[in-house]
Amino acid sequence: MAQFKAHSVLPGFNLALGYTLLYLSLIVLVPLSALFFKTATLGWGGFWEVASSDRVLSALRVTFVTSCAAAVVNVVFGLIVAWVLVRYRFFGKRVVDALVDLPFALPTAVAGITLATLYAPNGWIGQYFAEYDIKIAYTPLGIVVALTFIGLPFVVRTVQPVLEDVEAEVEEAAASLGAGRWAVFRRVIFPALYPALLTGFALAFARAIGEYGSVIFIAGNMPYISEIAPLLIVAKLEQYDYAGATAIAVLMLLISFGFLLTINALQWWVSRRGVR
């Protein structure tokens, strides 16, 4: 044990580490390994059958494409929201700030029903799009809307503190060196925000992949078009096909893991340049 532990003045290392390992095992490791065990009962053949079925593949595609699209939208607009909240003072700023957290607090089913109503062809917002023959609710576009809604706070709340950390002086210095607004943003502010934006993206993306409640109300859930993978899992469960359900779950897990690993690697690479 001794060689794993550097001497530290902080007390309680053994207790804290033991607790951490136990806690992580109970909460994360045990359920996840159960997932793999259950899937294993299918055997390779059975697993492959589930994994290669058209319906599963298209559901996975819908899930990951819409999640990625929503996360990208959130990165762009979340950055703008964070920018406004950090850089300007205006009446009602605190209210706007509180509003950002609303998607955290709202039950996702409520959000889904509300959004579906708003974006339906006869809804408040949907009617204007209907004029141009654009359907939002009950299409993959609707899924993106719902996922954008639930993912927004993740981006705003990760970018905000970092943006607060970029001193106005640095921007002034850049301006006095002759840089225009765009150059200041691109060369000074963006590099500082880049790691935080990546984290925000990863969080919003991961959250969107697992989202179920809000999506099923707005998606229309048409197989091959707007059916998401979590819904497929629930469908399999309802048919008592537990092994099939866990097989899809394992697939999602592996893909998500791959994505997050990539994002983390990217982040590590970015933050290696420029020591804070």
Binding site: A175, L177, G180
Partner: peptide, 21 residues
């Protein structure tokens, strides 16, 4: 004239260097 058009060099108390460069 804007700061960027004045051709003035400015040095700040807390340096204001670009940390990631």
């Amino acid at each position: 004239r804007d700061a960027r058009e004045r051709n003035v060099g400015f040095v700040f108390q807390h340096y204001a260097l670009f940390r990631r460069m």
